[in-house]
């Protein structure tokens, strides 16, 4: 049976998240849908269901936020996932953007 070589252990050195340089941590991106005076409310609800797979109740909640507050944060994701969702929402002509998390 071959001998198993273990990597050398340096006692006392335990990397912790706070010690890592900030630039190595990817910031989150908010996927935001903004209000506009053209897209119809049932249409916006339908798009949220189609893109995110949400049930009607959740989709309507976000649609109302868009309508009443001017915008709704739909998701917080990595850059790539946020970009994907913005593409999908804009294919339906919704005003969706991705914004770096503050």
């Amino acid at each position: 049976m071959p001998e198993i070589l273990e990597p050398p252990v340096r006692p006392g050195v335990i990397p912790i998240l706070e010690d890592q340089p900030k630039r190595t941590r990817e910031p989150g991106y908010l996927v935001i849908c903004w209000n506009d005076p053209v897209n119809l409310m049932p249409y916006v609800t339908h798009v949220f269901q189609a893109v995110f797979g949400w049930d009607r109740q959740r989709a309507e909640k976000h649609m109302k936020e868009v309508h009443e507050n001017g915008k709704s944060v739909l998701a917080k994701e990595s850059f790539e996932k946020a970009e994907f969702y913005v593409h999908e929402l804009q294919k339906y002509s919704l005003q969706a953007t991705m914004e770096p998390e503050a």
Binding site: F79, E83, V86, T97, M98, E99, P100
Partner: peptide, 15 residues
């Protein structure tokens, strides 16, 4: 626009 706050973000300009 893909973002309303893309200032200084090369990654967003490419996106």
């Amino acid at each position: 626009p893909i973002s309303r706050d893309a200032a200084g973000q090369e990654k967003l300009r490419a996106a």
